[in-house]
Amino acid sequence: MKTVIRSTTLADKLLFIALTTAAVAGIFYSREAMPKGSDVIIEVDGRTAYTLALDTDRVLSVPGPYGNTVVEIKGGRVRVKEAHCPNRLCEKQGWITRGAIVCLPNHIVISVGGKTENLPKGLDAVTG
């Protein structure tokens, strides 16, 4: 181990630091620059009832067997603000920017979709 460390040159070390820094910065940057899902799709009873833009703030009520479910879109996020179903799991899930909120008793599925769905599946064959 010692001989390895001694035989690395200054350029080696600088290159390593530069590459690691660039890669780590790149990971954060690419996560940040990633376009988020752009649409909120609200399905009732398996049918798409509303398609709303995620970047437009609004509050709306979706009727269901347990009364109105209040969905709030704000600042690029979406949540169930108020529900009257027994467990209120949808309300507890809080804000989401991707994925879905499912309210089973009310037959409501709120999903954030868009052009970048299932993105990381892009690569499936890179080998050395």
Partner: peptide
Amino acid sequence: LAYFLFIQRIEAVIFIAPVIILIGT
């Protein structure tokens, strides 16, 4: 090569490149 032959989605490449380069380093 993967971009031109298989993926053709620049955001996927940008997404994955830093991870691959970090592991490669």
